[in-house]
Amino acid sequence: MTSLPLPDSALPPVVSPEEWARAHEEMLVKEKEFTRARDALAAQRRRMPMTRVDTEYRFEGPEGEVGLLDLFGGRRQLLVYRFFFQPDVEGWPDKSCAGCSYLADNVPHLAHLHAWDTAFVMVSPAGQDRIAALKAHMGWELTPWYTLVGDGFSRDFGVPEMFGINVFLRDDHDRVYRTYFVNGRGVEPLLPTLSMLDLTALGRQETWEDTPEGRPQLPPYRAERHDEYT
């Protein structure tokens, strides 16, 4: 990707190491406040009530049809990402939603989640043959990806027309409960690329950001499929 013009006037001010250290210390105070606020939010999330899931949702996997309980893989918790790979997506059937593809690129090695008794899967309307071909092309071999059977799951869990992550918990009697849901910018914690950009002087380089004048700013949601960047 070609770098955008960056005049000297748009660069951060140049100061002595001592002045930089003072500015850094001031920033650390705010960052620690943010960390504590984030921890408090997570504590509140852990205290949310849950609701039981009684409907027998079905999914098609590489080895046949399964139920929601099967997606846990015997683990205690489950995150389900509704991935848009279906006929109304631009580029179908060879391409999937660019934003969903961006998230899939950022999914960590699932061994780390599994060590905390938690599973992560993706679900889409696309058939398993198309999913297998796309996974192979994009290098997403580690992420389990199931075909939605019908539209009940998407409709009931708030993802018929937008991506989102639903979180479930399984009790010792194999009863399943919905504990959390997030979509939109709420999925950003799953995108370490954005967190890395937030550490830089230029940030995400998008028009919505509060950025000093003269720095690169382009329209938001510029994520592309990783095989399409030029």
Rank of each mutant, 00 (worst) to 15 (best):
A40M: 07
Q44N: 10
A111T: 15
Y102M: 07
R76K: 14
H24F: 09
S96V: 03
Q128M: 13
T55A: 08
A98C: 00
E60N: 15
E33K: 08
W92P: 02
A126E: 10
G91P: 02
T35E: 14
E33G: 04
L68H: 09
K30T: 11
F120T: 12
L79M: 12
G64H: 01
K95F: 07
R47E: 15
A119G: 09
A115T: 11
Y102S: 12
V123D: 08
V89L: 04
D88Y: 13
V14K: 15
G64F: 01
Q77K: 13
K32P: 03
Q77F: 13
S16I: 08
K95Q: 06
A40G: 00
H24R: 14
A104D: 02
L68Y: 06
S16T: 14
E19K: 14
D39Q: 11
C97P: 03
R52V: 05
Y57E: 01
E90Y: 00
R38I: 12
E26Q: 13
L71M: 05
V53F: 05
P12E: 09
Y57L: 05
V80T: 07
Q77T: 10
R76H: 11
L41D: 03
P125H: 11
L71V: 01
G73R: 04
L28G: 06
E65D: 10
Q86D: 10
L113W: 06
R22P: 01
P12W: 07
G61H: 06
Q77R: 15
W116T: 15
L28V: 11
L79W: 00
C97A: 04
L110V: 06
T55Y: 02
P108F: 02
A119Y: 00
A126R: 08
G64Y: 01
A126V: 09
C97F: 03
E90I: 09
V66S: 04
D94S: 08
L41P: 00
S96F: 00
E25P: 03
G64P: 00
A98W: 00
V53T: 07
Y57P: 00
A104R: 05
R82P: 05
T118R: 10
A119S: 13
R45Q: 10
V14N: 15
P125R: 13
A37R: 08
D94M: 06
R76G: 04
A98H: 00
T35K: 09
F83E: 09
G64C: 05
R52H: 07
R46N: 10
Q77M: 10
Y81G: 07
R46V: 05
K30C: 11
C100G: 02
C100Q: 04
C100H: 00
R36I: 05
R22I: 13
W92C: 03
C100S: 01
F83Y: 14
G64E: 01
C97Y: 05
H114A: 15
